[in-house]
Amino acid sequence: MIHDFTYLQPGSVKEALAMLAEHKDDCKVICGGQSLLIVMRQGLVQTEYLIDIKGLNELNYIKYDDKGGLKIGATTTHRAIEKSDVIAKKYPVLVDMEHKLASIQVRNWGTIGGNLAHADSAGDPAPVLTALNATVKVGSAKGERTIPLDEFYTDLFETAMEPGELVLEVQVPAPAPKTATAYQKFNLLESDQGIVAVAVSITIDAGGTCKEARIVLGNAASTSIRAKNAEAVLVGKKLTDALFEKAGEAASQECEPVGDIHASEEYRRHLIGVLTRRMAKAAFEQAKKMG
C-alpha cells in the first residue's frame, strides 16, 4: 500500500531543482520509478512530496564526441541506451549490460539517472560505468558539480548527493586506445539482478603490458566497489592466466559481501574470484584486438 503524497510535476529542470530546494528531506524524486515504486508499494518508503521528473525531456539525450566523450541525460531510458548506435560502436559493453538489465518493460520505462541515484549495489550500470571511468553530473538550485562514479556511492542506497541535489547527466570519457571493458553478472535467471557482478576494464600498451586496470565489483559490498588490490596485481605486468587467477583471489579477499538466501558470503567471494579472473581475461583478449 502506497502512502499518500503530494504529486509535483515540474516542467523544467530549473523548476524541479526549485522544488527540491523547497522540500529537501520531505520529498522523493521519481523518474522511471521501476525500483522506487516497489519499495513504496511495500510501505517501506513514504514521502510527503513526490517530484516526478520522468517527463523532463531536456534531460533525455545521448551525445557523443571524440573529445568530450559520452553524455547521457538522466531521464534517458535504458532502452534508448541499449538501442543507441553510437554507444554500440564506442561502448559495446554498455549495450551488453543493458541487454541483461531486467526486462524490456523495465528498460522501456526505467532511466539511467534513476538507476544510478537509487544506489542499489546490485544495479548493473554502476559497475560498468565505474569501469569506464564515468562521472555523474549533479545539480541543485545552487549550482552543478561532477562526482566521479567511484566516489558517488557512500553506503547501501546512499549517495554523495546532498539534499536538494539531482542527477542530471552521466559522463563517460571517450574510449582510450587499446582499452576494453568486459562485464558479467552471475545469476540463475538472465533478467535478475546479479548475485555478484564484475566489470573489468583493461588498457594495455603496444607491448601488451597492462597500463591501467579498473576492476569494479557489484553486489559484493554495500556499494559497488573498486577492487584496488586486484587492479594492482595486473597493472604494469605482462598479463597471464596466472595473474588473472591472482587478481581473482585478491578481489575475492578485498570484497565485503553479505550472505543471504541466494548465496552465502563464502560463495559470493568465490564467484567474485571466478568472475574477476574471467572478465580480466576477456577484457585483455579484447584489448589486444583493439587498435
Binding site: Y7, K54, N108, W109
Partner: peptide
Amino acid sequence: CETVSCGACTVMVDGMAVKGCSVLAMQ
C-alpha cells in the same frame, strides 16, 4: 505480484511494453 516481477499487467504505452504496476497513472 507487488514487485514488478510477473508482467501480467503489461500494457503498451505509446507503443512500448510497460508493466502497468511500475508506473504511476499520472506519468
